[in-house]
Design a protein around this nucleic acid. Structure first.
Lengths: 223, 223, 223, 223
DNA sequence: CATGAATGAGACTTCATTCAT
DNA sequence: TATGAATGAAGTCTCATTCAT
């Protein structure tokens, strides 16, 4: 069993293995689009091509489904980041840019970015989610950036800046763009020129890195 | 009874006139705390000290109530900003800082900041709100900051930066702080050090303005 | 207000005052007929002539509705019994018979008897109900009968019998009849002669009291 | 694998033959604990160590499963009782006591007693069960006890009592104890002293038999 | 104007039963 | 035979909005 290679007839077994992923995909899409509360469980099931009951076969509640979505989409990234930081040889500014661009590629410009919107919007109504997110996303991410900044400051590459506040200044606009894209940016509003996220990103990196460096001229920020 | 000797007579008449304001206050509080959808109309009425029916006497629906809240809290500010820009004599950087600090005082650090959270979170589920917000808030605000940046670039004070993107880099972190304060920042999560918004703000201004100026040394950022 | 005497037009106010009772009546009927779990909240509402939502205006959950039914139907009786015991002058056997007949009139032969069925059947699935019922019904009832038996034994009227066990022997068959009436006895089974509860009751009292008395001949039990 | 060296070979074959019994055992346990409706088919299967589908291979529905449980646990007893009555030589009171004690040993104090609880509770929601139970349990049991009472009255041993009512007075408390044990008696309620069923039983027999006999002194009730 | 009783659509979740493997 | 994935009807409870008083 399990001998066959790739594109199969969807036998019962194959379907069973694919279900969790299909459900997570559908859930991410809908949660990002409509938010956690406003997304109906049945809708998720439908978009995954199954019935309401089936969803509950794989995830015991809507809340657990959401947690699974978060874990799949954000969990792995942190680990990779830690790896990258440990191995990197070179200017801290470059490492920072690399981390941020990676985040942009893997989260910021994908649907996963919408997860931040959901958290931001609904965490106060679901206290359990707050702790979950603080533990599994916020804390590790802060540690990661804090480490890189500390390294740059120690090496004399950066000015002597407060790490957490600086990390915030670095990340906030990126997350904000991501947020925006799944919110007002996704609405067909008239007369409101949509912004190009990539160009926002470039300006932001240029601006903030230049502000951080001890000798501004030395940086060739952007891509 | 109840006729206290203060400067205002809280007669039925007085109350009647105060109603809309009381309702708007209650609504802002609750909308910010729980979001638009999750706030129950009855709760708003209760907090304002009236009955459910009375709420509907003043506002025909929850959505209209929300719009009124937005208008009251964000509408006036734009006008004031335009005034300030027109009259200001001095360095553009200073004007920028002044605008941003004013925003911080009047919106960012108040409950009104939570309105952004609501819009961000729920605008996609209420398409009508999107247009309303784009017209009444986003467009004027962008125009305002674009003008100041343009002035600084023309005068040679600032580097030659793209105005809209730079405005974004300036504002995003501030709005993000505001957002955060009414979201994860308001949750009692263990082991997640809460950040001081004012110090975030200072670091941010320091960093970004320095990056914007043609001759960095000249800036005396912060307050 | 409230000046009018009895049979009114069902104005909104009047209806509001009558609602709780109407709902309790409907609930008792249905709970006894189908059990607690099998009774749908909406059905209760319907039978009371209101909508689903209205039920929840008066009782916050099906479980609380049930508790209210129990309190109304069994709660008052205990108090009356205690009163009766305190004031009674005469043979203990007579007092016993009086208590039991009262119970029969007020509970046993009425719909309220079905409450016992519900408790018996579902208490294990609703642990909170167990404590509620033990406290509000079982304990007081046991105390009551224990007191009367103790009195009869002390006065030499009854043999020296264990009070709790004897109380049980006295009450169990009566409750059992009551139970039966709302269960198998209410089913239209063919070939199963229905029993007359009153004659069961008479035989039971005759039998057990005779067994309790020190000098059997002296008793003219039954009615 | 799993071929233990006991007297039975637990091969697939053996298991297959044992299945129905294992399912009935699991079902009895769960039905008694939670009632018929509240017991989930899957749970029964699980406790019997098979899958949900397998349960339906042996019993076409939950209702049929329940009937099978009743037949197995109560069906045989009646026949034995009839045998005992036919062969017994001696005082009718003794025969009565023997029958009742046998019932107590085989049903009353075992899990099977809980079946009465289920019937009592749910028969009205499953009309088909009513007829089934009336035919297979109630009618034969009544006939049995009626016969013994008739014999005792005819022989002058008992007073001239109505047979059905007296049978009821005899049996009701016993069944009631049994019921109670699987209901309130099984709940961990605070402050509600649990009763000893055997002592209840003794008091009951003592009391009622004494009331039945023409010459009370002659009875040596109890065990 | 003000009230708050009433409505009913709608959301999450459970579970008996079926059926492809 | 045996499995367990899948279904979908059904049940509890919520809440925006209406309207008689």
């Amino acid at each position: 069993m399990r001998s066959d290679s790739t594109d199969e007839v969807p036998t019962r077994q194959r379907r069973k293995e694919a279900r969790p992923q299909e459900l997570l995909d559908a859930a991410l899409e809908l949660f990002v689009e409509k938010g956690f509360t406003a997304t109906r469980a049945e809708e998720v099931a439908q978009r995954a091509g199954v019935s309401k009951g089936t969803l509950y076969l794989y995830y015991p509640s809507k809340e657990e489904l959401f947690k699974a979505v978060v874990r799949q989409n954000l969990g792995s990234l942190i680990a990779e980041g830690q790896e990258a930081v440990a191995q990197f040889q070179g200017a801290s500014a470059e490492l920072l840019v690399q981390l941020m661009l990676t985040w942009w590629e893997r989260v910021g410009r994908t649907r996963a970015a919408g997860i931040h919107k959901i958290i931001l919007a609904e965490v106060r109504n679901f206290p359990e989610l707050a702790q979950f997110y603080a533990d599994e996303v916020i804390a590790p991410a802060e540690a990661l950036f804090g480490a890189v900044l500390g390294r740059g400051i120690t090496s004399g590459e950066f000015r002597d800046l407060p790490p957490r506040e600086t990390a915030h200044a670095l990340l906030a606009p990126m997350i904000f763009i991501a947020l925006h894209q799944h919110s007002v940016g996704a609405c067909p509003v008239q007369g409101c020129a949509t912004m190009d996220p990539e160009s926002l990103l470039r300006t932001h990196l240029d601006l903030v890195l230049r502000g951080m460096l001890r000798r501004p001229g030395a940086s060739e920020s952007g891509r």
